[in-house]
Amino acid sequence: MKKLIASAAAAMIMALSVVPAFAISVNSPVATTQAETQPTTTNVKKDDNPVSPKTGADSVAAYSAIALTALACGAGTLFAAKKAKK
């Protein structure tokens, strides 16, 4: 019996909430809470580096390697040649 009364009351509340005059007085969170606007998501890989992009064209490392390796090769060859003479 209690269940029947409860379900009848629930059905009445639901039916009344459909009527605008009653619905206004009901503080429905759905009706009053403004949907948050989501920022438009993009797939850009952001540059959040504190340092500016490196726009140099000088291949300092490569030029240094060329100089050093050339020097080492030359020195090694001279050393080997001297040894061979002996």
Binding site: T69, G76, F79
Partner: peptide
């Protein structure tokens, strides 16, 4: 010595 020279020569070529 020859091995070292070859290694440096390769590094030179790469650079």
């Amino acid at each position: 010595i020859i091995a070292v020279i070859v290694i440096f020569a390769l590094a030179f070529a790469v650079a």
